[in-house]
Simulated scan of single mutants.
Amino acid sequence: MTLDLTDKTVLVTGGTRGIGRAIVEAAAHAGANVAFTYRSSVETATELVESLGGPDKALAIQADAASADDAIASVQAVTAKWGRIDGLVVNAGITKDGLMIRMDADAWQSVIDTNLTGAFHVAKAAYRPMMKQRAGSIVTISSVVGVMGNAGQANYAASKAGLIGFTKSLARELGGRGVRANVVAPGYIETDMTAGLGDAADGLKGQIPLGRLGQPDDIAAAVLYLLSDVSTYVTGHVLHVDGGLAM
């Protein structure tokens, strides 16, 4: 078997930048029909659709990751266009970092609402179609921070740790229907989110056995594995893609 997604339909939340965009592009190059959500940049989303082969192969959906209504509408748009949803990648997320003593309730709640409750909304929307198909793969994007914790990121760490328990519960609920649910936990990846690290990046590299920050394509490759038929006996697993940081 190969990482071939031909004839599969995949929805990626937060798909226009960084890790999300790498996943969208990798899935499309593997043959999938790909839908992705985005929050604000219509121009970027339109350009991405065209680069993936146009509206026959790709669909851009403007959505708020924290909105239940938008989650339902996103899944419905996918099934209306292609008749099914084979893969769901829950990638959309935000950070509002700060030491907890200075963190206000809004900074806490907005991160939880987007990163964790948003995952609940979109997975719930995909739950019934995948059950009816008796097939499907859900991949949530957690973080090494959700495994190890990190000073100044109590809200983010809580949301990403919550995704792990949430996804394992989905795996137990849906396994009997042939639907799998797994987690990818990235380490420090070179994206817009880590671009501001500056000299601190060198210190991080010293903590990583492989000695480098990861690339978005490293995460996309792991997600493709979990979406593909190569991983049909893998569910409830947390796949660390972190250069050995959290071993």
Rank of each mutant, 00 (worst) to 15 (best):
A123M: 14
T16H: 02
Q76N: 12
S67N: 02
G20E: 03
P186G: 07
P55H: 13
I208N: 02
P129Q: 01
K8W: 03
L213F: 10
V230Q: 14
G198M: 09
M148Q: 14
D7T: 13
L245A: 07
V184F: 06
A119Q: 08
I101K: 15
A126D: 02
R172S: 11
D56C: 06
A154W: 03
V42F: 09
P186S: 12
G236R: 02
A123L: 08
L197D: 06
G243P: 06
V111K: 02
D217F: 14
A60F: 04
T191L: 13
H29C: 15
I141L: 08
M100I: 12
S143V: 01
L226E: 05
V144W: 06
D199S: 11
M130Y: 06
G20Q: 08
A65D: 02
L52M: 07
V12R: 00
V139Y: 09
G83Y: 08
L48F: 14
G98E: 14
T95Y: 03
Q153W: 07
V122K: 01
H29W: 12
V184H: 04
V89F: 01
A105P: 00
R102K: 07
G196E: 06
M100N: 07
A35C: 15
T16D: 02
S67I: 03
A26M: 10
G162R: 09
V78P: 10
A28I: 01
N33F: 11
G54W: 01
M148H: 01
D7V: 08
A221F: 00
R102G: 15
V24R: 00
G83D: 09
G53C: 10
G136E: 04
G118P: 01
E190L: 07
